[in-house]
Design a protein around this nucleic acid. Structure first.
Lengths: 165, 165
DNA sequence: TATTGTTATACTCTATAACTATA
DNA sequence: TATAGTTATAGAGTATAACAATA
């Protein structure tokens, strides 16, 4: 490519679009969402399947609770778990306390898969923020956390990616 | 941070989760995405239908170009436009320069709808960042814009919501 | 009676492959 | 031949409604 003149991005100056808060947030979110969707797809997962596995990393909830975590109807969960189970990523297990209920458990394969996807997602996101200086990253983290923390009803994404310091 | 003591959120302090950058970004993005999805759904729109209308606000592209904007195969665009056209939100019009091609145009109804959804999305997002001080909002905007601007291939969300000052 | 989960049904969204009509 | 668009088909994902089993 290299259109040389016309718009000569000589070097560093990335020609930042002058966005308002709402547009900037919308575009950032879209970028992040697409990043996850793309990596998931490369592993034959949808975003919702990835979220399913993410939730199950540290829980073995009954179907109905899973539905609450993911914001889905129980009939949607049935199908979702069907497909994941068919692929050997999760299993349904009996619930000792209530015989109507079934717990959903991630398998070793499922765990391995979600960890791989999570790691790649994390790497890619790091690449996206690579132009930020350390203090800026720190700042962005705090601001994002504050906005998220101020929200009440909080659907799950829950890939808890950062291994933490 | 200042985690007060174990778990006594005396008052204002919203007990911010101590997230890493990646988790904070993921959760923020998820929050924003869900906000749009929910408002769209209340208007019988999916996120992709909303994006379709958003793109068409200032363009009348041929189907194939629409597919490039939205990152979809031409067959997916056919169906998408079919359903939107059936609802009277867009129309297909002849392309003078190439008789194989059809331009897609938003209707007045479509425009009205996407503007309503965009306004509500904007309001809701403003509510989400309401806990930020003006300088923080300014900062978040700049940081988000910088991350977005550093990205190359940029799929469209394009609701250009902020009427701008 | 109420709740947990499944199934039947219907619709959107997506892609691949085969097709038509232009170019 | 190559490109723009449609259609047929297949599958995921979603919800509503009706159902069975259990509480």
């Amino acid at each position: 490519m290299a259109p040389a003149d016309q718009a000569s991005p000589r070097q560093a100056a990335p020609v930042l679009p002058d966005l308002g808060l709402v547009d900037a947030l919308a575009q950032l979110s879209f970028l992040v969402y697409n990043t996850l969707a793309e990596i998931a797809r490369e592993h034959d997962l949808s975003v919702v399947q990835t979220r399913l596995l993410g939730v199950l990393r540290d829980r073995e909830p009954p179907m109905i609770v899973l539905g609450q975590h993911l914001g889905l109807d129980k009939s949607s969960i049935s199908g979702l778990v069907d497909r994941a189970e068919r692929r050997g990523l999760v299993t349904r297990t009996a619930n000792a306390a209530d015989r109507r209920s079934l717990n959903v458990t991630i398998t070793d394969d499922g765990r391995e898969l979600v960890e791989r996807v999570g790691a790649l997602f994390s790497e890619q996101l790091e690449r996206h923020v690579a132009t930020l200086a350390p203090e800026q990253r720190e700042l962005l983290t705090r601001l994002a956390a504050q906005v998220v923390g101020a929200d009440g009803d909080h659907r799950e994404i829950d890939l808890h990616l950062s291994p933490g310091p």
